[in-house]
Nucleic acid binder design. Sequence first.
RNA 1: GCGGAAUUGGUGAAGUGGUUAACACGCCGGAUUGUGGCUCCGGUAUGCAUGGGUUCGAUCCCCAUAUUUCGCC
Length: 370
Amino acid sequence: MKIKYNLLHKDLKTNARYGNIETNHGTVETPMFMPVGTRATVKMLTPEELYECHSGIILSNTYHLWLRPGEDLISKAGGLHKFMNYKRPILTDSGGFQVFSLAKPKDITEEGVHFKSHLDGSKLFLTPEKSIQIQNKLDSDIAMSFDECPPASATHEYMKNSIERTIRWAERGKKVHNNPNQSLFGIVQGGAYEDLRKYSAIETVKLNFDGYGIGGVANDGESKEDMYKAIDYSIPFLPEDKPRYLMGVGEPVDLLEGIERGVDMFDCVLSTRIARHGNVFTRHGKINLKNSKYKDDFTPIEDECDCYTCKNYTKAYIRHLVNSDESLGGRLLSIHNTRFLIKMMEEIRESIKEDKFSEYKKEFLEKYTK
RNA sequence: GCGGAAUUGGUGAAGUGGUUAACACGCCGGAUUGUGGCUCCGGUAUGCAUGGGUUCGAUCCCCAUAUUUCGCC
């Protein structure tokens, strides 16, 4: 069965919306934050720990799993869910972002993308068909179309050619997609160009996907203004009855801005990456636990936080772990950051249901950015 | 007791008679947005054991003192 998005309530004052997505691995509520598990693991966290964080959908990656261990092995294991023992829904990214980070523009052809393996330097060729076929075998709940992710600095001309090709790629991928239990999302590109976002959205929607990604907003050097514009220019042309997924965004402030504009899904490596480097989100902004002022701070990261880490450990202890390069430090902080964003989403959903999203946002930002 | 060697920041250490004393680690900050996990970027000795002397100028030369260390009795 394909996923089914149900729009349950629209905020009266903003474009924020509350809904849910029914999948073969349970129903999840939106807006939601999806932790990232690139290599079939949300780094440092077990599925049980993710459940304890109330994680819904998690993200994994076609490119990485294609290279290692290979889609055939995962298929043999019974699919990605069984392979990694995650019982809730999984979304797989198409490898499009890796095209951006690993290939040069000249390596991108109409047929597909040539680039070198980050593991051993061997030559690789990825096409829209190949990406979808790999994802079919991975058997994720949601597959993403194979797209190109041009940087914000791309010229209008380059961007126009790029989005036209991405649309053709989306169509090609959709043609070969044949997993009845997997849904497929299209991806809107176009940088911060209003006409291109509109064009990309309209043409992609014509292909009738199960949901729509808004991509190219968190590549490298995009300003927040460009990100917000990209959302504003895309969303009016996306159907109300399908989920919208802002790809790669996960800073608390950006989550609020995205939700206000009508985004339903987010994913981001930020929460787990910064955790491994000693940083955590708190209601009062991001803090760096490596700072010496936490040396003898024997209180939890946040008193009011309900995560495993905050219920059991002090800042001083975690700081010691991080400074000693002990992996438990990164683990505990990953738990906190993951729970932080998911809990934030829970509160946001409640606020939308009560038409109080604006108030929630204002209150959150007052504390977070002061 | 006699003779030799050494003494540079928190640590291990380079170095030169002449503007800002290398590097590494540590420490102190910062970054990080569809992940090329354990990374990247900054800052960190007004000072080269102490006191004299030589010199236009000394961390680098000389003398004394202290400490450490090696060898001999």
